[in-house]
Design a protein around this nucleic acid. Structure first.
Lengths: 207, 207
DNA sequence: GTCTATACTCTGATAGAC
DNA sequence: GTCTATCAGAGTATAGAC
């Protein structure tokens, strides 16, 4: 009796591997085409699975997309969370900028997935933007404002300073084809960006 | 004889008006959904026309999209073209930044249309990015480099300075929902951006 | 767990009446 | 010039065999 051991979510190695293959393929497609532009055919082909098999692992196209967004957001807020109110202002701000730039370099598809979503009005993220994200920005803005009042950094509108970090770092991932087309051959965009943004923010926050 | 006065492109007031209605509606939809995400049904509905009637004015979905992109690009490069090698460096650079910021404020849909296109790999713009745009950036980069060598502005990588202007100004249009969500009520994003970016670039280019 | 076959809807585009 | 009707193909999702 009570032999119902067959849990609904069995997790074999093959299952885990196929779900990862699907996520990987879906990230490619969603980040380039946006939600509506992506098709299950494209995702299934890249994952090396049949379309029905893909829908065995995820119940719908939307479910795959939401899974990717949820995983993305964890990593996305961490660099700002790590900004330490007790640390040295310049080191903390430059450190945050560098962590964001490294995210753009190492996870450009995730950056574009997020950009696509916000560009389209953030239908699946609105709640988060005005909730968790706003709360985090408000918290760290207070830290920046405090530093400014103590004369340790220049007096800048803290939210816009954060926007500047987002805009400048994400640009290298989101507009990568434009950056590479304009620079031409013989450039290392991220190495150059690293140096340039270091200088930019050093000058900007100098009291 | 020679009575063939019926030109293929008759241009009545109604035709002009309907074509404009279609462009207006298509800009709404393409800028929010991207090319593949947009549907003729959505565009036709917003334009107040039937789908076949819409296809009477434009031969295909792609044709509408290309028409919008072509019109956009004219306006898009003008602010950089206007950067005057004979002018005062600081006034020219800040003037360029302000013109770009004004474009974001006054034509956010055009900015998002462009962002969508580049984000998706710029399939219809690649040629322009590596051609006309690169040439223009190279030309103006030489001007900036010259100013730097003369000690009139700081020694900065000129292309990345231009990227910074693009990234910071376009961010307010492309990520508008995020900017508004994070700022909350009682803010005028563009007025604040104007002041902040004036300060940012003033500090940045100071020798 | 994975596949083939298929149901059903949406979408871009055309035909042809008015 | 504008509409109704419609087609062909692509798209999401499901049924059911193996």
């Amino acid at each position: 009796m009570n032999e119902e051991r067959q849990q609904p979510r069995t997790r074999t190695r093959i299952q885990q591997r196929n779900r990862d293959l699907i996520r990987e393929a879906a990230l490619d497609v969603f980040s380039q085409q946006g939600f509506r532009g992506a098709t299950l055919d494209q995702i299934a082909e890249r994952a090396g699975l049949s379309k029905p098999n893909l829908l065995y692992y995820f119940p719908s196209k939307e479910a795959i997309h939401l899974d990717l967004l949820a995983r993305l957001l964890d990593a996305w807020l961490d660099p700002l969370r790590a900004l330490d109110p007790m640390g040295d202002p310049k080191a903390e701000i430059l450190g945050y900028m560098r962590r964001k730039l490294d995210l753009s370099r190492d996870f450009p598809r995730e950056s574009r997935l997020f950009a696509n979503e916000v560009l389209q009005g953030a239908p699946r993220l609105m709640e988060l933007l005005g909730g968790e994200l706003k709360a985090l920005v408000d918290e760290k803005s207070a830290v920046l404002r405090q530093w400014a009042e103590e004369g340790r950094i220049a007096n800048l509108p803290p939210q816009h300073l954060i926007f500047a970090i987002w805009a400048l770092t994400q640009h290298y991932a989101d507009f990568e084809v434009q950056v590479r087309a304009v620079l031409g051959e013989g450039h290392d965009p991220y190495a150059e960006a690293h140096e340039f943004l270091d200088l930019l923010f050093t000058k900007l926050i100098m009291p």
